[in-house]
Design a protein around this nucleic acid. Structure first.
Length: 110
DNA sequence: CGATTGACCGCTA
DNA sequence: TTAGCGGCCAATC
């Protein structure tokens, strides 16, 4: 488990149910703005897809993006989100800017 | 080592 | 407004 991966999982676990963030948001939160695509690569090999809520990470325009290795399983990503109360229409998170989770500035946590 | 790949992002036509 | 395209960074070949 690399240090980068650990940083990613720990931030991911702080996103509450019913909220989502973008890959770019996550990248910024771990102090690596611009590495959104690289993070997607990491999430694609997420060892524990349920405990680590990688389904709460979507594209910056509100589209779902991939899940568990590719775009094929994004429907399952949608189901998980809807269970948490996130509405999705036509593969797009409804009202994405409003339910978007803002990561607290670094140092404000434990 | 360099080259390629991928669950992305933002600008341009 | 909607497509397309290049750039980005970390892992893999």
């Amino acid at each position: 488990m690399t240090e980068l991966e650990e940083a990613v999982w720990s931030r991911l676990r702080r996103i509450p149910p019913g909220r989502v963030c973008s890959y770019g948001d996550l990248a910024e939160a771990i102090g690596r703005p611009g590495s959104a695509r690289a993070l997607g690569r990491l999430l694609s090999k997420n060892p524990e897809p349920i405990v680590t809520p990688c389904h709460r990470v979507v594209l910056s325009d509100g589209r779902l993006g991939g899940y568990m290795g590719g775009y094929e399983r994004s429907s399952q990503k949608q189901e998980l989100l809807e269970i948490e109360g996130v509405k999705v229409l036509e593969g797009v998170v409804v009202d994405f800017p409003r339910i978007r989770f803002r990561f607290p500035p670094e140092g404000s946590g434990p």
